[in-house]
Each structure stands twice: as C-alpha cells, then as structure tokens.
Design a protein around this nucleic acid. Structure first.
Lengths: 245, 245
DNA sequence: ATAATAGTGTCTTTCAGACATTATGAT
DNA sequence: ATCATAATGTCTGAAAGACACTATTAT
C-alpha cells in the first residue's frame, strides 16, 4: 500500500471534488438613523448591472483561512481593519451562479459609519450604503444576495434582543441615549428610556461600557455622560431578552 | 461587448476560483443516557486509521444544494430520511486537508437512537456511536473534526437552555420525565422536576407536545401520560433561559 | 420660566427555582 | 402499608416593562 506522502504526491484535485467558492460580507452601518448595507454595482458578467454584496472569490495565495478572506474584502471596500464579524450561513447549489455548482459563505459585519471611507474597487464599480428597507427599489440583487441579506438581518435583529451588538454601530464615543437610538433603529420601535437604562447600567457595571468622564449636550437638555466600549471580540450576552414588537 | 450567454459559453472554472469542498454532519443521539456522536473509522488516505465525521465531498450530479447533500450523508449512514438539521459553521483554510485549500460546512443533526440502523459504507469502514465525553480516547480526529464537534456541541448545549431541541432526541413516544432526562444528559446536571414541568406545560399548551391519551409505568411509580411531538422543522423557543450550571 | 433631557424610585407582571403536600398505582 | 412516582400549590428573587417625579442644563 502506498504511504500517505506517496499518495499525496500523486493526488490531483478533479472537477468532481471542487466547487466555485466565494465569501460575501453583509456589512451593516447606521447612516441618518437608517440601517444600511454596503452594496456594489456590478460592471461585468455574470449579473452585470445588478447590485451585489462586496464579496467574491478567495485569493488562496493570500489568505490561509476564511476569516482572513472576508477581512480582506471588508478592508478593500471600507478601509476598516477591525470590525465585529460573525459567520451567518453557507449556501451551495447549482443555480445561484450561472457558471456552475457554487458555494458561498456569508458573514455579518458591523461598521461605525464615521470610521468608514468607501473606496471603489480596482475596476471602478460603484460602492454605496443602501438602506435595508429600500432594497426593493434596487431590483433583484445578483447571486441571490437578497436571501443572504435577509438572513444576516434576521440574525442581527434576533441578537440585539439579548446582546450589546449595537455598541459596534454607534460612534466610538457615545451617550446611552445614542446607544438606545441604535437599538430603536434596529428593532424599528421605541424603547422606554428607563427600561433601556437598566440594561445599560448592567453593561457599565460589567465594564463593557466605560465612562470617559466627559459630558455632552449634543442630545440637548441636561448633559449626558459620554461612554466608550471596552475592546472585545464577542458580544455581551444578557440573561433575558427584550420584547421584539 | 459580449452578451452574458456568449460570455458564459466561454467561461471555464480554473484552479484559482475553485476549492475542495465537503459537508460534515455532526449527528448526535442519546444512547444509554450518554450523548453520542456518529463517527467513521477511515480506511484510506488522507488520515487513514483515524476517526472522522461521516461526511465527505458533495456529489454535484445528485444534489442541487447543500441541504440535500448533507441529508444524503445522513441517510447513507443511518437510514434516516427525516431529522432535525441545523447548519453550524463553515471552515476553510490551507491546512486542514493535506490535499490543499479546502472548505467544509458542518451541520448538527439530532437522531432518535431507536430509529437508527447503522450501516457501514460501500468501502466497509466502521461506523459507530461514540460518547462525546470519551472522544479523547479515540485520539485526534481526522481533518480537525474535533473542533467541528466542539462547535456543534456548544450550539446544542446553548440552545437547549431556551428551546425544545431534546424533543428530537427522545423516542417518538415519551413521558415528560424522559424528556427531562434528555435535558439532564445534555446539561450534565439535575433539573428540579417541578421546575421542568412548568416548561413542559407550556409546550403542551402551545401544542408542541401532544398527549397521546396513553399512560405508562415504565418509569415506575404512578403512571405517567405518554406524549408525542408535533411535526415541525424548527425548534420551539422559550422566552427565558434555564441556568446552565 | 420653559423645554428638553438625565436620574431616581415605585409598582406590576412574569417566570425560574426551591420545596412542601397530596394523589395514584405496583408490589 | 410501603415505595416510587406524578400532580398541585406556595414562596422567593430577579428582571422587564410602565410610569411618576426630581435634577440639570441651554435658551
């Protein structure tokens, strides 16, 4: 019997073992009190002229794993090196890409609007923040990307009922009111101020939110303390959920 | 400029666009009050002699999407046509498979032990239920599969604190006590009977559990009603969580 | 003073969790 | 009668949610 190394030398991947593969980040931000997602208008086949997620195939020579690949996509379009990331889902089938059986993994990323500097790619395609509740107006997206955005949005909306994810969407320095407004944009309903503040108090007590000592009157009225978020790579999880509707 | 159909005719996937791809189901069952996962002992390269998840490459000619592919894997090894399924994660990198840059998507599946008829595959490899807390004794699994099992297990243990997932692990007809014991196996701690029954009552009221009208004394003592689960493809979600420890 | 906001406190409801008491059937 | 279990009820504590009232600043 051949040894593993001998066998490996002879191994050649064939078309039965391989698929077309890409990663697609669903990058959210809040712009003008609207939840937006980053889209690119395709100039080339397939689906030329349609809007699509800013993803694409993985450069295997530059990335040693998926996470690196999707970070590269994010950096290319937004200039962000750090952001909250979460893998959402992987879809693979014979019909979403006309080129053949293909697989794509989608990630959700959260970006602070102020921190992003949009840059179009090498080929000069448009890159824009599009409000998620006006996606219909853009027509059907390329590569079934609508369904991926739906899934990412669902995950985000589910998760904010028991996590502090909106911390990654507000500016680096923010008031509790601004954090609450981020929750309200995502839930699309008002949240009682005093009820929300109890959750915020827990974040402060846990050290997730740090009081900078500064105060601001940018919200009007009595000056409010300015907080910043602790550096961390996972969300804070509350032990109970907020009502969604 | 070429039309999309002209362009498509000329398109040929090349090695830069493609990766080795596979799906790997992490199939759980409860056997002798132990949570077990289905593993296969590999006979061939790579990783021959090691235990691995019962997955592998997708037959693109037989499956039109990922879900179909993983269902085919499940059916091949267990004979199950229906089961609870959930996609867990996708990992892609240059090192987990010695054959090259590869991507794999893992699913968690829940199986009723009584319903499963293990069948070895065409190549006659061993297929066995292995207790999850004795996986160390099997040595390192093939293809970094340990980490996939960890992720699936984590998801399962997280989810049973707020869902009815163990319904998919007990026999088709069961008592509330048996359902509670399934939770206890997964949480690895006792649950107060009366506390658990409150959750069960909600499942009954919601129609998730259906009283068959029968009673059984197989648990000893006073006869207990026998329930069955409503047919459904998603978990019931409670609005509060149980303590994990 | 007024308006807009932040901060504090009160009350209700829901539910997990713990535990006591009663009911039912097998032996 | 005893034992093991199911069924029912009582109590506590925590947190969501609603809302009233006070405090602080800009105008």
């Amino acid at each position: 019997m051949k040894s593993e190394t001998e066998w490996l030398e002879e191994f050649q991947p064939n078309e039965f073992d391989t698929v077309l593969f890409s990663v697609d980040p669903v990058i959210f931000t809040i712009k003008n009190k609207q939840l937006c997602v980053l889209l690119v208008k395709r100039k080339y086949h397939p689906y030329s002229g349609r809007w699509a997620l800013p993803g694409g195939r993985v450069d295997k020579t530059k990335c040693s794993n998926l996470e690196e690949a999707v970070r590269a996509k994010l950096f290319a379009k937004t200039g962000l090196e750090q952001a909250y990331f979460e893998q959402i889902e992987t879809e693979g089938n014979s019909f979403m890409d006309p080129r053949g059986w293909s697989v794509t993994t989608t990630y959700m990323a959260l970006a602070r609007f102020d921190d992003v500097l949009l840059s179009s790619n090498e080929t000069g395609e448009d890159v824009e923040w599009q409000p998620v509740n006006k996606l219909d107006e853009l027509g059907e997206l390329a590569f079934w990307h609508n369904s991926f955005i739906d899934a990412a949005l669902q995950r985000l909306r589910d998760k904010i009922t028991y996590t502090d994810l909106p911390v990654y969407l507000v500016s680096k320095r923010f008031t509790i009111r601004q954090l609450r407004e981020a929750y309200e944009v995502l839930l699309d309903k008002p949240i009682t101020r005093q009820v929300f503040n109890k959750r915020a108090d827990k974040l402060i007590k846990e050290g997730v939110l740090i009081d900078t000592g500064d105060k601001t009157t940018e919200d009007g009225g009595r000056p409010a303390p300015v907080y910043k978020a602790k550096e961390k790579d996972s969300a804070h999880i509350f032990d109970r959920t907020m009502k969604r509707s």
